[in-house]
Simulated assay, not measured.
Amino acid sequence: MNHRQLEIFHAVMISGSASRAAELLQVTQPAVSRAIADLEGAIGFSLFDRVRGRLVPTPEGQLLFSDVRSSFIGLDRLRASAARIRDFGSGTLRVASLAAYGNTVLPRAIRLFRDRHPEIAITFQIALSAQVRELVVNGGFSIGLAADEVDLSGVDHRVFSTGRACCVMPPGHPLAAKPVIRPADLDGVAFIALSAEDRARARLNAVLDAAGARPNVVVETPFAATVCALALEGIGVGLSQAVAAEGFVERGLVLRPFEPEVYFKTFLLFRPDTQKSRLVKDFIAALLAARDRGAPKAALSRRPRH
Rank of each mutant, 00 (worst) to 15 (best):
A21F: 06
I36L: 07
A96T: 15
E220Q: 08
F267Q: 04
V155K: 00
P260Y: 10
R305M: 07
M1C: 06
R293H: 14
A147K: 14
E23L: 15
L279W: 09
R199Y: 04
A31C: 10
I8M: 10
R52F: 12
A184T: 13
H157I: 09
A206T: 13
Q29A: 09
A184D: 13
R251C: 02
H117D: 01
G238E: 09
D38C: 10
N103F: 13
R4C: 09
D273F: 09
V136L: 02
A225D: 12
I284F: 03
R203T: 06
Q131G: 15
L112H: 00
Q125W: 07
A244N: 00
C166R: 04
N205R: 15
I14A: 02
S17C: 00
N205K: 11
F283L: 00
S142P: 04
G16I: 15
N2G: 08
G61C: 02
V150N: 04
T92Q: 12
F65M: 08
V155F: 08
E23Q: 14
A242T: 11
G139K: 03
I120P: 05
H173W: 03
A109W: 04
P30S: 07
C228R: 05
E233C: 02
F88M: 02
R114D: 05
A35H: 12
P215I: 07
V207T: 06
L55K: 10
A11N: 01
A193E: 11
V217L: 05
S240L: 12
A80F: 00
N138F: 07
P257V: 13
A82T: 11
R303T: 08
I8Q: 00
Q275C: 01
V249E: 12
V27Y: 01
R214V: 14
R182S: 11
L287R: 08
R182L: 14
P179E: 13
E7V: 06
A193V: 06
F270E: 03
C167G: 08
R86Y: 15
I143E: 01
S301K: 08
P179T: 11
H3F: 14
I36F: 03
S66N: 00
A22P: 10
A37W: 10
I120R: 07
S17G: 05
P260V: 08
L106Q: 08
L128D: 13
I181W: 05
A100H: 13
